[in-house]
Computed example of a mutant assay.
Amino acid sequence: MLPGWQEADGAHIAALHVDLAPGWKTYWRAPGEGGIPPLFDWSGSENLKSVGFIWPAPEVFDNSGYRTIGYKGGMTLPMRLVPIDPSKPITIRGQVDMGVCEEICMPVTLPFSAALPMNGPRDPAIAAAMASRPFTRAEAKVQDVDCDIEPTDRGLALNAVVDMPPTGVIENAVVEVRNPRIWVDPAVNQRDGNKLHISADLSSISGGAMMVDRSAITLTVLGSDYAVEIQGCD
């Protein structure tokens, strides 16, 4: 755990740093087919109100027709920790469950513990990881996002048209709905000039009815030149 520094508003910037053996990889928050996203347990922490993650742009891996998304060789995952009392330091204790993969993928559990210094210096490794996050909608010059959601015999079909410049020769789109009870199939994308068409099927894990909050939909475009993250689907 990289202890990081305290911001002017009292929040603390720290990071989980994971080194992996050559050829091994771990996964992004939306890991793709067969991947395991990191899951954190903060239950032993002190003076900790909330945690927000700043995800660096991941890579897309194709293995025998299956697409997974993550980081090769390791990752530095910055996080913004909000204290209950900004005048006191935060102590974090807990564990992270995550998947690691070479030829065979396996889950691992890593315990962590750190007292975060209130006057720590800025860490270049954390700053570099924060700088590698996907561009925002404004930074990527996204002009418009139009989403249609229609019922199907399996659930719902989401079709989005994003007006934005190409992010590289190769582009992969990811759709997230921020609802663990909804399964999102791998997205399919196709470009027509400055219009990127993204489609994905949504289904309820329980098999029942479901409701999708458009403001909670995240569209991420992972291009060979840069990545873009779009919050909300109009």
Rank of each mutant, 00 (worst) to 15 (best):
P3N: 05
E7C: 06
A8W: 05
A11R: 09
H12F: 05
I13D: 00
A15Q: 01
L16F: 03
V18R: 13
D19N: 14
P22N: 12
T26L: 11
Y27D: 07
Y27W: 08
Y27A: 06
W28C: 05
P31A: 11
E33W: 15
G34Y: 15
G34S: 11
G35V: 01
P37H: 11
P38W: 05
L39F: 02
F40I: 02
D41W: 08
S43N: 09
G44H: 00
G44I: 00
S45E: 02
E46W: 05
N47I: 00
L48S: 04
L48V: 04
K49P: 01
K49S: 13
I54K: 10
I54P: 01
W55Y: 15
P56Q: 04
F61K: 11
N63L: 10
S64W: 09
S64Y: 06
R67G: 01
Y71V: 09
Y71C: 03
G73S: 12
T76M: 06
P78G: 05
P78R: 03
M79E: 02
P83E: 06
I84N: 10
S87G: 05
S87E: 07
I90T: 03
I92H: 00
G94S: 01
G94R: 00
V96T: 15
M98N: 12
C101Y: 02
C101H: 13
C105Q: 06
M106A: 10
M106N: 09
V108P: 07
T109K: 14
T109G: 06
F112H: 00
S113G: 07
A114S: 15
A114P: 03
A114V: 12
L116H: 02
L116S: 03
M118A: 07
M118K: 09
P121C: 00
P121K: 01
P124R: 09
A125D: 07
A125Q: 14
A125K: 06
I126H: 13
A127W: 06
A127F: 07
A127Q: 13
A128D: 14
A129C: 08
S132P: 02
S132M: 09
R133M: 08
P134I: 04
T136L: 03
E139Q: 15
A140F: 00
K141H: 15
Q143L: 07
D146Y: 10
C147E: 01
C147H: 09
D148S: 13
D148Y: 01
T152E: 04
L156H: 02
L158C: 08
V161T: 13
M164C: 12
M164N: 03
P166C: 12
T167I: 15
V169F: 12
E171V: 04
N172M: 07
A173K: 06
R178K: 04
I182Q: 05
W183R: 15
V184T: 13
A187I: 07
A187C: 10
V188Y: 08
R191A: 10
R191Q: 12
D192W: 02
G193V: 12
L196F: 14
L196W: 10
I198A: 01
A200E: 12
A200M: 13
S204C: 06
S206R: 10
M210Q: 03
V212F: 07
D213P: 00
R214E: 06
I217D: 14
I217H: 13
T218F: 03
T218A: 12
L219K: 10
T220L: 09
T220R: 14
L222V: 10
L222R: 13
D225K: 11
D225A: 11
Y226K: 10
Y226L: 08
A227T: 06
G232K: 06
C233Y: 02
D234A: 08
